[in-house]
Every structure is written in C-alpha cells, then in structure tokens.
Design a protein around this nucleic acid. Structure first.
Length: 232
DNA sequence: AGCTGATCATAT
DNA sequence: ATATGATCAGCT
C-alpha cells in the first residue's frame, strides 16, 4: 500500500520539498512512498513521473488539472542522459483536431506550461531504474521570448489543423513545439479530418516540447550541482 | 546519434 | 474514448 504525502501548502513548500529530493535514487524515493520498483520501464513508462507525483504530494490522478491545482503548478520529470542532456521530448497535452477555432491565449498548451516544476532524472537503458538519481528541480514560468516562440509554432500547426490538412502535419514541423501521435496504438481514433481533408476520424495527436527546448531551460538554469550529480 | 511515429499502463 | 504519466523502437 503506497504511502500518502500531503499536498504542499505553498509553492515555496513545494520547491523546498523538491530540492530535498535532489541526489536521491529512485529506489530510495520508491521506498519512502512504499511503491515497488519495476524491473524495466517497457511496461511502466510513466512510473518515474508517478513516483515523483507521490513523493511531492500531487494526486490529481488522470484528472485534467495541474498536478498541484491549488498552486497552479504542473509537475514534469525530465529524463536526462549522463551528460545532463534531455533524452526525450516532453509531452504536454492532446491537441483538438476537429478544426474549431482556438486561440493561443486560451490554449491548453499555454495553460499547461504557465508554471512548471521540472525535475531532471537520470535515464537511459543502461542505468537500472532504481539506481537513477534525481537531479536539481527548478520552477519555470515562460519568459516573453519563450512564449513568443511556442506561440509561433502552435499557431503554425493549428492553422493546418483548422483547414483540415492533418495529413500535411508531421513531427518535423515546429522548431520548439511539435505534434506527434499520442494514442494507445496506430488504430486509435478521435474526431478530426481524414487525409482527403474531409471531416472524419483520425489518429489522436499531442503536443510535445522538443528536447532542444528543454535543453535550453536546463542550460539557462545553470548553477553548480553536487559532484555526483554534476551533469544534472 | 537523433528523430519521428508508435506504443504501454492506469484512471475516469 | 479521453486524459494522466511518458518511453520505445525503427529509420535516416
């Protein structure tokens, strides 16, 4: 039975709590909240993220709200390699593909990224799950420049969606933000447009932050890290 | 090696 | 099916 951690009362309490996790291994964290460490992530892809949620007192489950709704903070783990570079893009949210008009201001992408607590975690197939260590968490709010760039990509992608040309969009589009499949499998369906541009079911897709973007956040954060976690 | 498209688990 | 958490795996 997993142990329960109470929700942090403030952003300050949250960041302090997060800072204390820096340097810990996932095995130590798992023991603290009493959850087992899987042998592999192949069938537990979201395990690290869910572990951090528990450890920090988030418990929104799969509900469509921020992890720390009362604080307006979203929690995102960031898998990094031995050199401290992001190993993967970061999933943000699903995209509405039905062509209804949307504005950047009211977009889910903008809401999701309004305030994010990033938690770097060592990752890689050669590093056993339990031995991976938590890096130095940091709170991020998009700067005006961050938002300008994300908005530019979002609008370009959504313009193609709005005219029903889902077939013209690929993950190659977008400098910082991209649209990629987000589904149980390639047969999944959601309202959208078929390849000929007519209304119909299509593959669900989601917005992802390219690793180049998160790499810049890590670099911007800068600062000295403990020797053993020099890279993260 | 990096990237794109596909996939896995769980809760609602 | 939608939304949460992401990583896998084949191709360039």
């Amino acid at each position: 039975m997993p142990a329960t951690v109470s929700p942090p009362a403030s952003i300050t309490a949250l960041t302090l709590r997060a800072a204390e996790l820096g340097g810990m291994t996932l095995a130590q964290l798992a023991a603290r909240v009493a959850v087992p460490v899987p042998a592999s992530q192949i069938r537990h892809k979201g395990w690290t993220g869910e572990l951090l949620e528990r450890a920090l007192g988030a418990h929104s489950g799969s509900r469509p709200e921020p992890d720390f709704a009362h604080l307006g903070v979203e929690l995102k783990t960031l898998p990094v390699n031995a050199r401290g570079r992001p190993r993967e893009s970061t999933y943000i949210c699903v995209a509405a593909l039905d062509g209804r008009a949307q504005s950047w201001e009211a977009s889910l992408v903008r809401q999701k990224l309004a305030c994010v607590l990033w938690v770097p975690v060592e990752a890689g197939p050669s590093l056993p799950l339990g031995e991976r260590r938590v890096g130095t968490p940091f709170l991020w709010r998009p700067t005006a420049e961050d938002e300008r760039q994300l908005r530019s990509d979002w609008e370009e992608i959504m313009e193609a969606v709005a005219i029903g040309r889902l077939d013209q969009i690929s993950a190659r589009q977008g400098r910082w933000l991209q649209l990629r499949p987000k589904a149980a499998n390639a047969r999944a369906q959601t309202p959208g447009f078929t390849d000929d541009g007519s209304p119909g079911a299509t593959l669900p897709r989601g917005f992802y932050l390219r690793s180049l973007f998160t790499a810049q956040l890590l670099a911007r954060r800068g600062g000295a890290q403990p020797p053993t976690t020099a890279a993260i």
